[in-house]
Amino acid sequence: MTVKELVEACDFRPVCLPSPDRTVKGAYTGDLLSWVMGRAFQDNAWITIMSNINVIAVASLSDVSCVILSENVSLENDIVETAKAKGINVISSPLPSFETALLLGGKV
């Protein structure tokens, strides 16, 4: 499933989708950046409540397919611009991380 299809299937809100056709394979949930760096796999959807600029660096370096911000966490505009520039897909979910992960279950 692509990131764009995931957004539609789960009724998430796209924050920015500079690479909408990337394939999502599995998911990882976590807020400690080094932990995520070491454990998330390439093409995972990464579910987090963290919203600082370093999230974009970690997403870029760990090659996740998208960042899903749970609980309607929002990003400041300049961070969204950085995400766009680095080709990082960012999605917003109104649900807590656990429920967001449940929604993804069986889909990715």
Partner: peptide, 16 residues
């Protein structure tokens, strides 16, 4: 509070 300090820095460096 920025999401760092998980104590995974050196272990990750060794692992990878």
């Amino acid at each position: 509070s920025l999401g760092f300090g998980a104590g995974m820095g050196l272990p990750n460096m060794k692992r990878y």
